[in-house]
Design a protein around this nucleic acid. Structure first.
Length: 577
DNA sequence: GCCGTTTTCGGCCCGACTGTTTTCAGTCG
């Protein structure tokens, strides 16, 4: 069994225990074991077979028994038994802000609530407010949370969607007659969350056998045909996958249509008409004759347009700009030379400073900014002044020995306190010891929009602040960001010369791409920051690249594409601000 | 359930906030 899959099951045992109202510390033991498993080196089956788990901190007799059963049979009877007496709907309830396992358990046992629908009914019938620990305000907030979850239903975050897309591509490429498979739709446009995965397959002969195979892909359910050449199924956690099969000469038009957006396609169709062509999802036509276009780039070129990257295909006005050669050269993953927001085991990161540095070097990066939590973030092991000094000594030692290969910057993710001061700000010259400072909000989310905006603007007045971290605090599919006047924040950042990060964690993708064109016009710089808590987490920069590209950003707009010397100069100038 | 001992039970990341309470449980980051 795959280590990650095993860890997920062990973790779910913990969640199920909590939902069943068991001792929360017992549940935590399973969470700890799952986390320990993710960190330990080696293949899962070998770890179990060689008895190596016995030495792993966090594993004891009960968790080892589960691991052994998973390795031998691929399933866990403990997990199965808990799962069978826990309604699936309770997992959805956990996603509502303000509801944890205790309260879900109470709602379940006291009111028989087993799903979002049940909860909504109970709240509307005013049955929740009278439960111990609940009240009118909580009841109203739950209804808000349900409405938000409903609005996000059927959507998936990028990692899950890309995993499905990769598996689908591999599966389809192996079918006879399939010559090419491309991901399309919202995923190709790199939207922060997507409603399903769209795939276009070029088939050399009959589409029917490919569609039949698609409908019978392992794990598929609820499959149905769409017209003569398409089908949809549900895969994984219920994410919808849609397939369109086309002959080679229809590929370019079909991919354009399947990629969208509707507004973009409409603008391209209008452009085609203006140029004396007719465009539909089966091809490009002049009169009754098909115009041969082998791929999208050719299709755009025939219409007198520069190639329009999928990320730019949203509102439709990009088509007019493409006609004038007015599109930017978008930043790409290969442009990155480092990043400025990652955590180490000094605070809540899983990897040591050295491990993070080596991982950055292995990615071919030239520098890495370490930004652990500040003291106010006590839950995350925020650093005391003594720990900062120790970390800085370690960074100096690394740079002395390895700085010519990978330079480490001394950074900090400093809490923006409720009144807008930066953590450590009233202590003599603590913030001045860093090369740069990322300021983030981690507490007091329920301020009003005016207060929150003021809080952040005040933080930007502190000359130590280099970058604003995840500016809305949103968690995709989980929690809306706190209310904030982003236009005012952008203006204040521009005035203060503070950059705004693109937090590349796929749960955040914050600041949102929709704000970046305006921010760029105001001259605001960004850094694509993975907010990594592990060595693998550094790879999340890929999702941030998607945001930057959707925001029309070029490499020049993104500080972590700059050469080391330029970054140093930029930080030094910030210091003198 | 696991850990770590002042070695066999008591504590478990920790402080703030919120909405309940009328002194605190639950949630969150």
């Amino acid at each position: 069994m795959d280590k990650h899959a095993a860890a997920l099951i062990i973790e779910e045992i913990g969640t199920l225990m909590e939902l069943q109202g068991e001792n929360p510390f017992r549940a935590r033991a399973f969470y700890n074991a799952a986390r320990a498993l993710e960190q330990v080196e080696g293949e899962f089956d070998a770890l179990v077979a060689e008895g190596k788990l016995e030495q792993v901190r966090g594993f004891g007799p009960a968790t080892i028994a589960v691991a052994r059963e998973l390795a031998e049979t691929g399933a866990s009877s403990v997990h199965h038994e808990l799962r069978s007496r826990t309604p699936d709907g309770l997992f959805d309830l956990l996603r509502i802000p303000g509801l944890g396992a205790k309260r879900v358990h109470l709602l379940h046992t006291q009111l028989g609530v087993e799903s979002l629908d049940d909860l909504e009914r109970a709240a509307e019938e005013d049955r929740i407010a009278s439960l111990p620990g609940f009240g009118q305000r909580t009841q109203a907030k739950l209804l808000e949370g349900i409405a938000y979850l409903r609005s996000q239903m059927g959507r998936s975050r990028q990692p899950e969607a890309w995993a499905i897309a990769a598996a689908l591509t591999e599966f389809l490429c192996a079918r006879a007659g399939v010559v090419r498979v491309e991901i399309a739709g919202e995923l190709r446009r790199r939207l922060e969350t997507v409603r399903g995965v769209d795939v276009v397959a070029v088939v050399s002969e009959q589409a029917a056998p490919v569609i039949t195979a698609f409908l019978e892909i392992p794990g598929a359910r609820g499959g149905e045909r769409v017209g003569a050449s398409g089908a949809r199924v549900r895969l994984g956690d219920g994410i919808e996958a849609r397939l369109t099969c086309v002959p080679p000469d229809a590929f370019a038009a079909a991919l354009l249509y399947a990629t969208g957006s509707d507004a973009h396609v409409a603008a391209v169709v209008a452009r085609a008409e203006a140029q004396g062509y007719r465009l539909n999802e089966f091809g490009l036509w002049r009169g009754e004759e098909r115009v041969p276009v082998s791929d999208e780039a050719t299709l755009y070129r025939v219409l007198g347009l520069d190639y329009i990257e999928p990320e730019l295909r949203e509102a439709g006005f990009e088509v007019a700009l493409a006609a004038e050669g007015g599109l930017p050269t978008l930043v790409a993953l290969t442009d990155l030379r480092g990043c400025f927001h990652c955590h180490t085991s000094y605070s809540d990161g899983r990897a040591s400073l050295t491990e993070m540095a080596m991982a950055a070097k292995a990615r071919g990066w030239r520098y890495l900014g370490i930004a652990d939590h500040s003291r106010a973030a006590a839950y995350a092991g925020g650093l005391s002044v003594e720990q900062i000094e120790r970390q800085h000594a370690e960074i100096d030692a690394w740079n002395a020995e390895h700085g010519h290969e990978l330079w480490l910057f001394k950074g900090m993710e400093t809490d923006i306190l409720p009144d807008g001061r930066l953590d450590y700000a009233d202590e003599e010259d603590v913030l001045g010891r860093f090369d740069y400072v990322v300021g983030s909000v981690h507490s007091s989310f329920s301020l009003s929009e005016a207060e929150m905006t003021q809080r952040i603007i005040r933080a930007m007045e502190d000359p130590h602040l280099t970058l604003l971290g995840h500016p809305t605090g949103r968690l995709l599919l989980g929690r809306e960001g706190y209310p904030i006047d982003m236009d005012a924040v952008i203006d204040a950042a521009a005035d203060a010369g503070v950059g705004i990060e693109i937090n590349a964690n796929p749960n955040r993708l914050d600041m949102d791409w929709r704000h970046w064109r305006r921010a760029k016009e105001r001259g605001i710089l960004t850094a694509i920051n993975p907010d990594a808590h592990s060595t693998q987490g550094l790879g999340d920069v890929e999702y941030g690249i998607g945001v930057a590209r959707k925001g029309w950003l070029t490499a020049a707009d993104v500080i972590n594409t700059w050469p080391l010397d330029e970054v140093r100069r930029h930080f030094a100038e910030g210091r003198r601000r």
